[in-house]
Each structure stands twice: as C-alpha cells, then as structure tokens.
Nucleic acid binder design. Structure first.
Lengths: 152, 152
DNA sequence: TGGGTTTTCATGGGCGTCAATGGAACTATC
DNA sequence: GATAGTTCCATTGACGCCCATGAAAACCCA
C-alpha cells in the first residue's frame, strides 16, 4: 500500500486549488484513481486524506456490519457521506470544497502531513500546535506499539 | 462494485424530476441498467437507493432464507415490494414517485448522500439532523470496525 | 567539485465543456 | 378534450482542461 511521509506546505489559490505533493501523487499513482479521498477529521480541525485503495478497505469493513442496522448507517454517514473524491488535474492539483476548507480553517496555505498509510491536511499554524502536542505525548504512548496490537 | 461518496443537493421540479448526481451515474454506468433502485428507508424518513448490482446482492441474501418462512416473506415484502426501478432520462434525471416523496418529506430539494456501496435520498434539513446524530454516535461505533479484522 | 543545463514542480490564468435546471413539444390516458 | 407523463431542446454557471511562467532541484560533464 501507499506510504506517506514528511510535510509539504502548498498554496491554495483563489479557486481553492492545491497541488498534491508530487511524492504523494507517485505513491497514489498505482491505485487506479488519479486523485485523493478527503474528509473532515473526527477530532481535529484537519482533513483526513487517503487513496482509493484505503477507501475500499474501509468500505469492506463497513459492509460486514448488519445491512440495515443504525450502527452501520451512522458510520456510513460519518465516513462516506462526508468524503470527497477529488481527482487532480493534469498539473496534480485538486480543488478543496469550501466546507472542507472551513472545517480545517484553511485559507492561503495547506500543509500535507504524511502519516504512514494515510495523510492529513492542515492549516499550517494549527498543525504546529497539534504537532507540539503529539510530540509531548509520544513518549508515553510509545508503549502502545508493543503490547496488544490488534484490538487496541 | 460502485462506490458512493459525498453529498449532493439537487432540485426537485414540479414534475418530481431530480438529477441523479453525475458521479453516481458514472459509478452506476457500468451496471447494465441506466437508472437507480429506490425504496423507503426502514428507520428514517429517507429513501434507500442503490444500483442494479447491489439489488442482486440483496436478492442473494434473501434467497438464502427458508423459502416459505414468514421471515423471508416479510423481508421480501419490505424490501422488494416497496422498491422502484427508476430509469434516468437523457439528462440524467429520474422521477420520484409521490409515495416516495411523501415518505421522505421531500418537496423542493433532494439530498443524495453517498454511503459507500449504496446511498440515501433525504430532505436536506432532515438530513442535517440525522447527520448530527450520526456524528455524535460515530466515535463509539468506530470500534465496530476494528474488532474483527479479517485480512491484513 | 563546480558550473551550466535540463527536468520537474508548483502556481496563475483563460477557455471550453458538461452538468443541472427550466420549459416546450409531443404522446398517451381517461 | 383535459390531464398526466415522457421526450426533446435551450440556458447558464460551474468545473475540468489546457497553456504559460518561474523557481528549485536533479543531472551531466568538464
């Protein structure tokens, strides 16, 4: 699967267009869909992004739940209904819908942060704060990588 | 299979016509039937929609039940007897039958909400309420996706 | 190793196409 | 003959597509 690393700050122009970092595009190039999947993040003023393949994986998991259960409906609403499938143009840019821009408080610049198998998009200054916070907690959380892996 | 994402608000004109969002049509284009399958939703004042293929999948599931059981009869009635097969016209519009419009309290506008492998149609303001509810529940439900991890 | 060249990226703007929508013409039904 | 339903055409506004520019990085060769 695709691997996303590092951070990139790109401009958001008047039309809401942003260049997806070239390394990200290369990673995503082999997934059949020339673009990214983006949705508002649950807990942060940021956007969660991934490729088509990761989305398919999510779909698989959700489709294992009861077809008509409210549980499934709520999840699907929270995930898929809020996701956008953003194809990039010939220059590798996507247009971020206004509600996504609003959710992440993005205006002039957008920061792409690689998170391994997916990535996030932030307003740069907000990212700095969140990053500082994450770094402060990492030492204690590090143990989570060892012990019980699957069920958290 | 087709994947439905995002939300689209389209107008319902005097004749009950609505444009099926172009991305949905593209997803459904490869399913052999140029149209959508729609039925009243079980729990909500909304409509459940899907493509021909998803309907076939449902048919498979129902056909696994006891042929003459009450269970099967009830389900088949609830699902198939209430479903409409709505072909879209050359402009990509379908006519929503009045009883479906009534069930979902749809008048001037209809909101299409992608739910992964199928979608729903809502009266916009009602959807907002339902969405808020879904978002409230999602954090706890999120664990349902983790528990049984099949592949990986 | 350093200078020059080439390619790749990010960015801005303009134009054409397509999707959504409204209405008219046409057909069928009662 | 009136009403409802269906197909066709027209409009407009947004979005995708294309080209042009500049800067930075990679590359090449002396």
């Amino acid at each position: 699967m695709a691997t996303f690393l590092s951070r990139y700050v790109n401009k958001v122009d008047r039309k809401g267009r942003v260049s997806v970092p070239a390394p990200f595009r290369i990673e995503l190039g082999e997934e059949g869909f020339a673009g990214i999947i983006v949705r508002p993040s649950f807990f942060a003023a940021a956007l969660d992004g991934c490729g088509k393949r990761a989305l398919e994986a999510l779909k698989q998991k959700v489709s294992r739940l009861d077809p008509f259960s409210e549980e499934r409906l709520s999840l699907a609403n929270a995930i898929f209904a809020r996701s956008y499938q953003l194809p990039w143009d010939s220059e590798g840019r996507v247009v971020l819908p206004t509600d996504l821009l609003a959710h992440a408080c993005i205006e002039g610049q957008a920061l792409f942060a690689g998170l391994g198998e997916d990535f996030q998009i932030w307003e740069p200054s907000r990212f700095s704060l969140a990053e500082a916070d994450a770094l402060r907690r990492a030492p204690e959380l590090r143990h989570a990588l060892h012990g019980s892996r699957p069920s958290e």
